[in-house]
Design a protein around this nucleic acid. Structure first.
Length: 851
RNA sequence: GCGGGCGUGAUGGAAUGGUAGACAUACCAGACUUAAAAUCUGUUGGGCCUUGUGCCCGUGCGGGUUCGAGUCCCGCCGCCCGCACCA
């Protein structure tokens, strides 16, 4: 009897696939194509268990689609630019490129252990000049098309390190290294005009039938289309009018102040001779640039002293305040405050003793406004007070429309459709990214680099001993010639946001060696991605930017019209979590985290092996190195093999939900694969000619399993598909059918398992004398005839609760079922001689007797 | 703060609006063994009694729609994700 030894069979089959070129993507004239893509990884250096899940999910789809006769494209690459490489350079003096290349090499070795059906001939990293050079070409084409422009925008500035900080580098308003309070600083930066596509990106969501509804909803809310009123308020002192945008203009009667952004031109002008205001604005600049920080911060304001006239109630004068909560980027940078119908405005008004006036009230309710603003849904009816357009009781939506019409008619303002979506700032003041291919010439201005000079390569001789962007101080690299006049000029030192890199890699995979960004024939054939798999954390930005890029690439001739929505189907998987084991340490009370290997269960509790102290268990926590709860896939593969790791992550939880990694679960997966192995072994050793029992029953079960597993894979119900395979293993293990039937059953089972545990499946296939590779074998089909049962069991409910069951013929008529149901003992007993009030028969499903 | 999602036994989870708890883990019991491990078999949502082919309760909490709700609707609570320079 042989032993299941993944450490020998896994490398063996990996080699076999490799030398046979099993997973090379080839265009085919007689097969439908299928493009499976998982979000490519950042090369952090080590494979994370979350990667194992992500790539296994995609691999199941890829292998299954190959078996169902598709020409499959399943590529892999590296999202290789970004901050961690610079951090490594700062902390350890290692060159970012060297660090990144080492990480890629290391992770690629780890990837190979997983046995993924990838076409590695298409591999690239975004830090390859061949890749980012094509990205620079795209940038130039976008620039020519007017899809790129420059404007000022704020960044987080560390005044001590004299450097721009990413949002994650700002902790509680302070720079992560220097600890200095960050400031907002304005810089001239490059932007993609994604806002030109707001309407289009919103409308096209409707067509994305195979995207999760939640992702589409999140994107729609992010784009944030709103119809509102832009209305002007005249300054009492005769200064320039202040224009406000509101999506609730029906609350105009309740306006009691105007709040303008600290960056509003009026704020800036007034600050010139108002030191208090200047100080307040300076104070406001000491805040993160994140929206979350803005929203969470205490609402503060300063009265500018100027007033405006209410556009409708001319005798009402409103004070103008500068508010730290007003965004300059949205609307007009000024809002009117209506405390009665906006909670934030109400809090603000209470704080600064501003007037509170209702514009409407709920029918039958009083006007008193306490500490809670009245913010009804737009579909709810309210009673308007003294409405200028003559409204009384109406829905808020009707109130909004009437107000807009009135104001337009009287020349007070105009209807405006606005989007929350802002243009995409792509400039980064950093080294480790794709250089923006433009040149600054004293004579010619900002000039695009010539395409023949691409790629603009990053210099390799850089140091990180001084904070800031090494490109800025690399004079030799910066010095160049103006592409127009040929005089000495300076290169742009900003590099591109890494979201740019990941916004078109899926297109590049269709022809990774092409001397242009894409190759028309290859892109035409392989696009779109038929199934995209990745984390829900990318639901908005990455996916929205990619949708924009696909459109921009179409406009510049790099993608066909059919590829403007690049991802036909999207699947968002959950995280892999792991329990945290902690003990509280004495004085400071800070928890001490323990590795899983340091604890064990004892008397129903988790204790430290070392001294038996009880350990607190926090289940299902996000994996984090600092919490010592990270599972190393390599260690798991060395212990149990890749098939066990794959089987476990697939079986433990539905793929869209978080899955908790548990040692017992991994062991159970391993045990099961061992059982399958032994089962296969037993069948191989059976007497070929001995008669068997119940061959047909086994084969019927097999066909049901084919049907259920196929449905499971089709619907991403991998955990349920695996449960069916468990059940079938139990059946097969107990079967006393003939050799022929059992061999058929185990080979079919191997095929059904092949997308999940490909190495084990190959081995079973070979051991049972299968032809060729199981990876090349066509997917088994369920025989309809074998699925049909002659009778079925129907549950009987009495008043909706299950009380009994009956067995009826498969094709029994409704009348027959009723008759049998009414003859059932439990029904007779419950009816006690009376007639049922109602009798519901759902054919093939259920009978409900209502009494 | 805003937007989105999730919540089912001791645990992971299953269930086109139609038998809640499939399948697995853990626990307990049994077989095998000198013993242990491994393996195999069986029990296990809670409660009640009259121990039955029994009754009642039960899918975060509170309401609602329906012949019928884990599933749909409304309101809470808790956790997770995103918030534009982390990837």
């Amino acid at each position: 009897m042989s032993r299941y030894d993944p450490s020998t069979i896994e490398p063996k089959w990996q080699k076999a696939w490799d030398s046979a070129g099993t997973f090379l993507a080839k265009m085919s004239s007689d097969k439908p194509k299928y493009y499976v893509l998982e979000m490519f990884p950042y090369p952090s250096g080590n494979l994370h268990i979350g990667h194992v899940r992500n790539y296994t999910l995609g691999d199941v789809v890829a292998r299954y689609k190959k078996a169902t006769g598709h020409a499959v494209l399943h590529p892999m690459g590296w999202d290789a630019f970004g901050l961690p490489a610079e951090n490594a350079a700062i902390e350890r003096g290692i060159n970012p490129e060297v660090w990144t290349r080492q990480n890629i090499a290391n992770m690629k070795t780890q990837f190979a252990m997983l046995g993924l059906s990838l076409d590695w001939t298409r591999e690239f990293a975004t830090c390859d000049p061949e890749y980012y050079g094509q990205q620079q070409a795209l940038f130039l084409d976008f620039l020519e098309k007017g899809l790129v422009y420059r404007k000022n925008a704020v960044v987080n500035w560390d005044p001590v390190d004299m450097t721009v900080l990413a949002n994650e580098q700002v902790i509680d308003g302070k720079g992560w290294r220097s600890g200095a309070e960050v400031e907002r600083r304005e810089l001239t930066q490059w932007f993609f005009k994604i806002s030109d596509f707001s309407e289009e990106l919103l409308g096209a969501l409707d067509g994305l039938d195979n995207w999760p509804a939640k992702v589409k909803l999140m994107q729609a809310n992010w784009i944030g289309k709103s119809r509102g009123l832009e209305i002007s308020f005249q300054r009492v002192d005769g200064g320039e009018v202040i224009s406000c945008y509101s999506t609730r203009p029906d609350t105009l009667r309740g306006a009691s102040f105007i709040a303008i952004s600290p960056e509003h031109p009026v704020s800036r002008a007034l600050a010139e001779d108002n030191t208090d205001l200047a100080a307040f604005i300076a104070e406001c600049r000491k805040m993160d640039t994140t929206e979350a920080a803005m929203e969470k911060a205490e609402k503060r304001g300063l009265d500018t002293g100027i007033t405006v006239r209410h556009p409708i109630y001319k005798d009402v004068e409103l004070p103008v305040w500068v508010g730290n909560f007003v965004l300059m980027d949205y609307g007009t940078g000024a809002v009117f405050g209506c405390p009665a119908h906006d909670q934030r405005d109400l809090d603000f008004a209470r704080k600064y003793q501003l007037d509170v006036q209702s514009a409407f009230h709920l029918p039958g309710a009083d006007l008193e406004v306490g500490d809670v603003a009245l913010v009804p849904a737009k579909t709810e009816k309210v009673v308007y007070i003294d409405h200028f357009a003559g409204l009384t009781e109406a829905t808020s939506q009707e109130g909004i429309d009437a107000t807009i019409d009135y104001c337009e008619h009287h020349g007070l303002g105009e209807a405006q459709t606005k989007f929350r979506l802002r243009d995409w700032g792509l400039s980064r003041q950093r080294y480790w990214g794709a250089p923006i291919p433009v040149v600054h010439c004293d004579a010619c201005g900002v000039v695009p680099e010539k395409k023949e000079n691409l790629p603009v390569k990053l210099p390799k001789d850089v140091t990180f001993d001084i904070p800031g962007n090494p490109l800025d101080r690399h004079d030799a690299w910066r010095s160049t010639k103006c592409p127009i006049c040929g005089k000495p000029a300076q290169r742009e030192t900003d590099t591109m946001d890494t979201f740019v890199d990941s916004s078109w890699y899926f297109a590049r995979f269709t022809s990774p060696g092409s001397p242009t960004p894409t190759n028309a024939a290859e892109a035409e054939y392989w696009m779109n991605v038929d199934q995209y798999v990745g984390g829900v954390e990318h639901a908005i930005l990455h996916l929205l930017y990619s949708r924009f890029f696909a459109r921009a690439m179409h406009l510049t001739g790099h993608l066909p019209r059919t590829a403007i929505e690049p991802f036909n189907a999207l699947f968002t998987q959950g995280m892999v979590t792991h329990a945290i084991y902690q003990t509280k340490r004495g004085q400071d009370g800070r928890p001490v985290y323990h590795f899983p290997a340091e604890v064990e269960p004892r008397d129903g509790k988790m204790v430290l092996i070392e001294d038996g102290r009880e350990v607190e268990v926090i289940p299902s926590a996000k994996m984090s190195k600092s919490k010592n709860n990270v599972v190393d896939p390599v260690a798991i593969i060395e212990q149990f093999g890749a098939d066990t790791a794959r089987w476990f992550v697939l079986s433990a939880s539905p793929p869209e939900r978080d899955v908790e990694w548990t040692a017992s679960g991994a062991e159970a997966a391993f045990k099961h694969l061992n059982r399958v192995w032994m089962l296969c072994d037993r069948i191989a050793g059976m007497d070929r000619n001995a008669p068997g029992e119940a061959d047909e029953a086994l084969l019927r079960d097999m066909h049901k399993t084919i049907r259920d597993v196929t449905n499971g894979i089709d619907s991403f119900g991998f955990n349920a598909a695996i449960a069916k395979l468990y059940a079938f293993t139990n059946v097969l293990q107990k079967s006393r059918a003939s050799y022929g039937a059992q061999r058929k059953a185990v080979m079919t089972m191997a095929q059904l398992m092949a997308p999940m545990t490909p190495h084990l499946a190959e081995d079973i296939w070979a051991n049972q004398g299968g032809t060729g590779l199981i990876a090349d074998a066509p997917w088994p089909t369920a025989d309809e005839v074998m699925l049909v049962e002659s009778t079925l069991t129907l549950p009987i409910q009495i008043n909706g609760k299950r009380k009994s069951e009956i067995v009826v013929a498969k094709d029994a008529s409704k009348e027959e079922v009723e008759k049998i149901a009414l003859a059932d003992d439990a029904v007779i007993k419950a009816l006690a001689g009376t007639a049922p009030k109602k009798l519901i028969v759902v054919p093939g499903r259920i009978v409900n007797v209502v009494i």
